[in-house]
Design a protein around this nucleic acid. Structure first.
Lengths: 209, 209, 209, 209
DNA sequence: AATGAATGAGAGTTCATTCAT
DNA sequence: AATGAATGAACTCTCATTCAT
């Protein structure tokens, strides 16, 4: 009774191969062999190899956007919202670690229009995130001595980097890790941290800790 | 009076093309055309296309290792050493932004032995960095409630991510940015920040800031 | 009240696509889409793509053979018969200009047996035409200094060429054009024209007109 | 000492295969096998299969344009010029019969820009030819009761049709044929032929011969 | 030191046709 | 009568690399 479809089998095989060998180093032949289908079947459902890659991004972006929207819609206080968003995106990224690997490595191999589409959607996601941080700044929660763009990049750098070092089979638990990274981020952007930079900016000799 | 060599011209052209189009999408033909040399000349100095990529990594890794060693050799207090190292690696990464782009995107396209070599050297670099953090923990400067591996990853994620968002021609000054990111990192790993996680770990409702 | 059949819709779509893009450049998929039917339906009525092409030829050849036979059967004097045949085939060719385009461009793409069948029927048509000319020669109407094969080719070249230059929406009226081309042909093969070649054959300096 | 180049061998093989099987039915593999070269060598000199086809047209168009220009440049009386042009283009077309076959069958398979280029050059050729006819009309040599466009099409139809019926190994001598077809054309467009149409236009019952 | 023509394996993609439904 | 998913062979084209010069 197990129902497998060509689309699912191919997508699964593609994610694994793209993540382990890279998009460019993976031939369509390898994908169809790993998926147990024929080339003709693949091209019946996908217009091009590019489509395979975009499909992976599409799923990930849709999922993350949806989750972000849902959390924001709960209408909790800013600090709680931001913490929930951070934890959630890290956990989701761990769940889709292969997809993330492919995403960050191979986005530049997409056709130009699709690259723009991906960029557009990621930007929308980042903008929503930035909006929460800005609201927190207005409420006096977060420091304002560093541009929001830098704060946002600082957070997403952790998300991005996960696929470069995190091993799901390793010692770090996904949930614990999500809270640890979130805490590192939230501590660093807290309004109370702002003073540190003021004295440190022009000198490497100030004390901290 | 000849000021340009085949090796330099080719390397420069390769970095630019690999950064803008990706390694796999760049043909050797494109490289030789952009460098103004012939294929024969390129293959006289490089054994393979792989060599071109490895050469870029080689230079960047050597430079960063050398700078890290020099800073550590100054024998300053841990806090000053770590701050100096962080600022320096960020500034250097901005200076070699194209190389960084190539590095993080295309390392997986290297031949297996060279991929191992790169990994080995990056690990050595990270280990030295981790050693400084651990020394600081022993001195009571940095929090110990989060594994060092996570703290190290948290820092290098910023370095890594630079090539994805930072625009040298944009509004952010390189030095200012280096200090901002360093500050965000140092604040978050300070021993005094450790308490935050304790209360936050099991709940999303705790207050921060 | 159903007024369209799969066969008709498909044939119409095939003629248009084959004429505008060429037989080889038109996929069966394009034909079924243009005809508004499915692939299964097409293959229910046609054995192969080749069948589509042959069907177009079949219709055109049958029609022209039928019309030629009808005109000859009227038993008019040779000159009248030939004129009527010429005018008719030109007019019919204009009416089936798309079919003509396909015919002359793509006949060589038919399977060998069908190519032979087409050749056989065209030859029969030409032979009947040649017979009329020969009868006219025997009656002293047409010149005998040029082989009949050349005279016949001279006429059919005009028919053939129509699809390369004639635009139904252009200024030339179909009937007028048919009479003009017929006149050019009949004038040139008239017995009284025979002397012209005699003096011209070995020299390019003779006068004409 | 026989010098053969890849370009020549490939072009020769391509003309023969395209003429006998059609462009679309001939694979690049077949061309390289017939030419005795490798695929890589072919693609070193030709950018695409399209290039092969265009190269054939290019040579033919250049040759014919050059010859037309040379004849016109002799500045002979109109009648002599037109006769020389007609004889020459027919003889040349016989010499390049395979190229002609390819030309008329496969021009529509060229990429759009190249199709336009071919059309542009053929039109220029036809315009020069039409100019000679018009000059002859002004001089009272040729009939004016039929549009020049029809007269020009009437001539080129013979040239075009050659590849459909003429066999170089057959009984017709090239030069004799050229003069026969030229004569048929010149007789039919002579000013003295004009009266024939006047009485024939509205009726199929008039007598001729 | 340098050339660039030539190689040849393998890439992504198309498509007429089949067949279970 | 009709569907459309699936096949699989063949297609055009690319490209890192070699080697005679």
């Amino acid at each position: 009774m197990k129902q497998t479809s060509v689309v699912d089998d191919v997508t699964r095989a593609a994610v694994e191969l793209f993540a382990s060998q890279g998009y460019a180093n993976t031939s369509v032949q390898q994908v169809v062999e790993a998926a147990g289908v024929t080339k003709g079947a693949l091209y019946h459902y996908f217009q091009s190899k590019d489509d395979l890659l975009f499909g992976i991004y599409e799923r990930l972006l849709s999922l993350q956007t949806e989750r972000l929207t849902a959390i924001v819609a709960r209408g909790e206080p800013t600090a709680e919202t931001l913490r929930a968003v951070c934890v959630d995106v890290i956990e989701t990224s761990v769940d889709f670690l292969l997809e993330g690997t492919v995403f960050f490595r191979s986005a530049h191999m997409l056709s130009a229009p699709r690259q723009q589409e991906v960029t557009r959607r990621r930007r929308a996601y980042h903008d929503t995130f930035a909006g929460i941080v800005e609201r927190g700044q207005a409420e006096g929660l977060y420091r304002t001595d560093i541009p929001v763009a830098v704060l946002v990049a600082h957070f997403f750098s952790d998300v991005h980097y996960l696929s470069h070092w995190y091993k799901p089979e390793g010692p770090e638990d996904k949930t614990v890790l999500a809270h640890q990274l979130t805490d590192l981020f939230l501590v660093s952007i807290a309004a109370s941290s702002a003073s540190a930079l003021a004295s440190a900016a022009g000198s490497t000799a100030s004390a901290e800790g």
